[in-house]
Amino acid sequence: MISPALRDALVRWLDQRRALDGAAEATIEAYRADVLGFLAFMQGHHGESQGLAAVARITVADMRAWMAHERGRGLAARSLARALSAVKGFYRWLAEREGFEPTAVLAARAPKSPPRLPRPLAEDAASEMLTRVGLQAAEPWIAARDTAVVTLLYGCGLRISEALGLTGAALPLGRALVIRGKGGKERMVPVLPAAREAVESYVAICPYPIERDAPLFRGARGGALSPRLVQKAMEQARMQLGLPASATPHALRHSFATHLLGAGGDLRAIQELLGHASLSTTQGYTGVDAARLMEVYEKAHPRG
């Protein structure tokens, strides 16, 4: 049983989160459930009602026991991290008002979540996506624009911000394109004929003048094209094709890397094309396992 004083404190903390943070009601309810679940565990763990004094005595061992219990009942690492964050937030707030030391709770660390591996599209699905995006817009120039953008994402491995950051100065596209990526780092990427042709088709019918210092890809009113419009075009296309929600603009970049590696591309070269500082990041993009890495390494460094 939770004491009235502790329950009242939880209500006041949630009210503050709602007022100061502008938290949505669903978030508030998640906070409430997480903290109440934590307090219910502590009650059973200690065999006593949870009041302000009992909460102030929670130890590092108590925190470990709670987290082990949550994992034991099947709670995913990310869900436990969320619950721990809510508990810490409440505990920090309560400690400030009641004057006790919160270190035992605040020092607890959630288990590391396994990395979310990207989900590249199959080659036929990627091809269908490029075609379908071009069939959705009512105006031909917008259809050509959307096709050009997604073709650059898949055909050159560009980030959506990099594709939409291109200006008229990039024209006419040659066999390679210099891209300024994260941290201002420049890299050169090859431009496939399909990507070059898609951009040329868009430029030929775009109703706005393509100026050297202006965005290459324009919105319906002539301003810079919003990434959200590209995302929306792909959302519509993936629903029509029956593809999963993971079929996003960024998934086309993953697909570029994965399909290039599958065709025999060198992992180091793909790293350069993507603009990754670390080879491990490229490995994550392509889903390369240790055996595949060793195969690439052996080809690059054959033993004499």
Rank of each mutant, 00 (worst) to 15 (best):
70 E>K: 15
21 D>T: 05
148 A>C: 05
162 E>D: 01
133 V>S: 09
133 V>K: 04
54 A>C: 10
195 A>S: 07
101 E>Y: 07
85 S>G: 04
136 Q>G: 02
91 Y>D: 02
277 A>W: 13
296 V>W: 12
138 A>D: 10
258 T>P: 12
26 A>Y: 08
255 S>M: 06
144 A>I: 02
5 A>H: 08
19 A>H: 04
274 L>Y: 07
288 V>N: 01
203 V>S: 14
236 Q>F: 03
239 M>G: 09
86 A>N: 07
248 T>Y: 08
27 T>L: 01
119 R>K: 12
133 V>D: 07
251 A>P: 15
236 Q>C: 02
99 G>N: 08
221 R>C: 03
163 A>H: 06
36 L>P: 00
194 A>D: 01
43 Q>Y: 11
186 E>M: 08
302 P>W: 05
223 G>K: 01
100 F>L: 03
303 R>K: 13
74 G>P: 14
78 R>Y: 11
274 L>W: 03
35 V>P: 06
115 P>D: 12
19 A>Q: 08
191 V>G: 02
232 K>V: 04
24 A>K: 09
11 V>M: 00
252 L>W: 13
261 L>C: 09
193 P>W: 02
38 F>T: 12
138 A>R: 10
115 P>R: 15
284 G>V: 11
8 D>C: 04
93 W>L: 03
300 A>V: 05
195 A>T: 03
222 G>C: 13
284 G>C: 01
275 G>I: 13
301 H>I: 14
230 V>Q: 12
262 G>P: 02
156 C>P: 11
208 Y>S: 05
286 T>Q: 00
33 A>N: 12
251 A>K: 10
158 L>W: 10
199 V>I: 08
224 A>M: 05
61 A>Y: 00
207 P>F: 07
56 A>K: 09
160 I>V: 15
79 S>N: 13
276 H>V: 14
128 E>Y: 01
23 A>V: 02
11 V>Q: 04
252 L>R: 11
112 K>R: 15
189 V>D: 06
266 D>V: 14
55 V>T: 07
143 A>P: 13
156 C>Q: 03
150 V>Q: 12
145 R>Q: 08
100 F>P: 06
38 F>Y: 15
40 A>S: 14
125 A>W: 07
25 E>F: 10
90 F>C: 00
262 G>F: 02
294 M>N: 08
276 H>W: 14
162 E>C: 00
278 S>A: 09
77 A>T: 15
14 L>T: 05
182 K>F: 04
45 H>L: 11
97 R>Y: 06
188 M>F: 05
135 L>D: 08
124 D>Y: 05
304 G>T: 14
246 S>Y: 05
225 L>C: 07
193 P>N: 00
126 A>G: 14
154 Y>N: 09
78 R>C: 06
77 A>C: 13
301 H>M: 15
159 R>K: 06
242 G>W: 10
